[in-house]
Design a protein around this nucleic acid. Structure first.
Lengths: 146, 146
DNA sequence: TATTGTTATACTCTATAACTATA
DNA sequence: TATAGTTATAGAGTATAACAATA
């Protein structure tokens, strides 16, 4: 680790932060287009990682109280994006299932979040490879640090 | 512009987005440490760019209704981070002035937002220069696009 | 008449506590 | 007794409308 960050790196990082801020706005715009608040969009996105998710688990993932999840899933269900289904083994738990329409909404949200911004198109093949290598190296350090 | 983003770039961008997410948490943690909600912290940060900011202008910067700014500035004033002062020329407007304590809080928030994460320390001088060049190029395209 | 900041008010989001049905 | 989901309710955040002072 460097003792303290060099000026040059600070400036570079600042631009990256600005670039990524625009990405966040893109996500919120996409969510609004789908008629979803950021919270609802976040829930739907989280559901993309599990086939059938108990309400309780969803609350944990969203880092909010379980009582809120009821309203959030209500809303998503009204829009036909998810369905509630009983769990066969434990009749207390309700599983949230993403519908086909929900899958499409998820795809839009994922694209808004993770699709590289057009500005990256100015990089040529070599530069893209360079950038990929640098980011991979940083990521390696990140994973090692936990 | 590339016709569509190559897979390799998508993966690179995804890691960058993850890195920024951690940065956002760092900002919120710092805000909480200072006893500020994200909204209040954002207001204080915005005030760092102007010596004396009319309430109305602050509302624009925060992209919220002017009526909210009253409560936000009230809170910041209670904590001794800002002061309200009348404008000499137009007696309708009140200027928000950042106090010395406010300046210190601003510095903490700026650092949390823009200080490069420790993971970037794994890059050596050459790699830092490479990264700076690539990001500068992307930024150039971004500015050109508006 | 228009504008700045404020207040009153309503709607949303989120958290706590109490309730139900299961386990 | 403990747990999953729900409901009732209270607190913050944010928007609209009406108001007083000033332009």
């Amino acid at each position: 680790m460097a003792p303290h960050a060099p000026e040059e790196l600070t400036e570079t990082w600042r631009y990256l932060v600005e670039l990524l801020s625009m990405q966040r706005e893109r996500f919120m715009t996409t969510a609004a287009t789908l008629g979803l608040t950021p919270a609802h969009a976040g829930a739907l996105r989280l559901l993309g990682q599990l086939d059938a998710c108990p309400m309780r688990l969803l609350a944990e993932g969203l880092r909010c109280d379980a009582s809120n999840v009821t309203a959030i899933v209500d809303r998503l269900e009204e829009r036909g994006l998810v369905e509630r289904r009983s769990d066969g083994r434990d009749r207390r738990v309700k599983l949230v299932i993403v519908t086909e329409a929900g899958r499409q909404a998820q795809a839009h949200l994922e694209a808004a979040l993770f699709e590289p911004p057009p500005a990256l198109g100015v990089l040529d093949d070599d530069e893209r490879a360079q950038l990929a290598r640098l980011v991979a190296k940083v990521r390696g350090a990140l994973d090692a640090a936990g």
